[in-house]
Amino acid sequence: MYTYSKEHKEYLKKLKKEKIIVFIFRFLIIFIFLIGWELLSKYNIINNFLSSSPSNVLKTAINLFADGSLFKHIGITLYEVILSFVVATAVGLIIATILWSNKTISKIVDPYLTILNSLPKVALGPLIIIWVGASINSIIFMALLINTFITIINIYNGFIATNKNYITLLKSFRATKRQIFFKLILPSNYITIINALKINISMSLIGVIMGELLVSKNGLGYLIMYGSQVFNIDLVITGVVILGIISYFMYFIIEKIEIYVRNKRS
């Protein structure tokens, strides 16, 4: 058994103490916020009709759960987000690979990628409804417009920034382009790819909610839209809170994957 020196034990103690402080304060912030919000609206210091309250949000969530619509809405939004995330990831990887392997193609499409990426896609919303129809398809389409180009660009930029010395090394063994890709480009860019996935998941959520606000009959975006139309602020805020929880969880999963991959290779 390895025993640590006194200094090292003290260092570990300090780390632990810091961890506890961070945890307590994180908890305190949300606790004070919720209690404050609850009290302020209970005594009508802030207009409780307009600003809802934690207990009302909880009640609304329970009602939605009881009539079965909570998981239906969550399920549909999740389905749309995951579908557009997976498609954008696949398309992003494939296109980035093609661009990496062919300089001429990448030179040709470079300005188009930049334009498509910087264009505010929301502006195309009404047009998408006309083209694709007011269905789940246009929600996916909207999400893909928003998440795909940035995914391509991020992954591609990682690929072309790969250390040139490494490429020379593999070429000195007469490696084919395919070997260079699988032995070097892909494994050396795992952080880039994970970061691209993180951005992709946020963009997918944004795109899906945007789409749902515009056309949907289901999903959390619809819940929020519907709530605001009938002036049910409790419903709007419940939708937003659930969305926050979902996006945190998705981020959390990708972070776990990142840690898993990192641990596997060091």
């Binding site: 070097l184 494994p187 290779r265």
Partner: peptide, 13 residues
């Protein structure tokens, strides 16, 4: 022929 580069270029992973 084998080529040893100036930089060791070991793959960190």
């Amino acid at each position: 022929i084998g080529y040893m580069l100036q930089n060791d270029s070991l793959f960190s992973w």
